[in-house]
């Protein structure tokens, strides 16, 4: 599903060039539940941004579902983000002036799906994440865990191939973290590839495979025994 070949990425800081990713090779197959770990500065967020086509890379190749993702126009990038990817962020990133249902339905708006159709689907997904009764609530009326579940529903609505999560439990207490992780596992069980960036070992333990990054390279890549993918 995700094939990364010798990806390099550096940031230009004035006259200094700071290399963040120093040649990463990575293959993630369809249906995997993968976590990416590493200390801050290891390049894990940058990697996730590249995986999410939110950022460009200078060298190497990135194939998502068989398509090369390199030097895409903004319009193309928007298309792939919309059709192939679902994002879940640490700080949820829901639109404050839209209620839960409308937030979930938003990606389908950009696919020009009719209002009725996308609202029906959004409601289904809210039921699935256990928030069927909160559909008309505004984000500020929801708890952190609820917000993250709305965000997950939003990530799922366009039926993407890959769910990318950036510290999805970073802003949650341990109990809600567990609930959110259970939800990710459930999503994974339904056949979606899920990639989670985290620095929490408990989160990584719940994934079937953990990739450790350090200084812009893959340090080790372990399959967790006992976690089915």
């Amino acid at each position: 599903m995700i094939h990364i070949n010798q990806i390099r990425k550096s940031y230009q800081m004035g006259s200094l060039s700071l290399e963040v990713l120093k040649g990463i090779d990575l293959n993630i197959e369809e249906g995997e539940l993968v976590s990416i770990m590493g200390p801050s500065g290891s390049g894990k967020s940058t990697l996730l941004n590249i995986l999410g086509i939110l950022d460009q890379y200078q060298e190497g190749e990135y194939h998502l579902a068989g398509t090369l993702m390199k030097s895409l126009s903004e319009r193309k990038a928007a298309y792939y983000r919309n059709h192939y990817l679902g994002f879940v962020f640490q700080s949820f990133h829901l639109l404050e002036f839209k209620n839960a249902l409308e937030n979930v339905a938003l990606p389908l708006y950009y696919q020009k799906v009719s209002r009725r159709k996308r609202n029906r689907k959004a409601r289904e997904l809210l039921e699935r994440v256990g928030l069927g009764d909160r559909a008309e609530h505004m984000p500020n009326e929801l708890s952190g865990g609820q917000k993250q579940r709305v965000a997950i529903a939003r990530a799922l609505i366009s039926d993407p191939k890959v769910i990318l999560a950036d510290e999805p439990t970073g802003a949650l207490d341990s109990q809600t973290s567990d609930q959110v992780m259970d939800l990710f596992k459930e999503v994974n069980a339904s056949g979606k590839t899920v990639v989670i960036v985290t620095h929490e070992a408990e989160v990584a333990e719940k994934t079937s495979r953990t990739i450790h990054l350090r200084d812009g390279v893959v340090q080790n890549d372990t399959h967790n025994a006992g976690v089915a993918s």
Binding site: A78, N82, L95, Y110, Q111
Partner: peptide, 16 residues
């Protein structure tokens, strides 16, 4: 800005 960023991340085209 943040809101527009979110929209872009979930698939909004520059034109939209």
């Amino acid at each position: 800005t943040r809101e527009i960023g979110i929209r872009r991340a979930i698939g909004a085209t520059p034109f939209s």
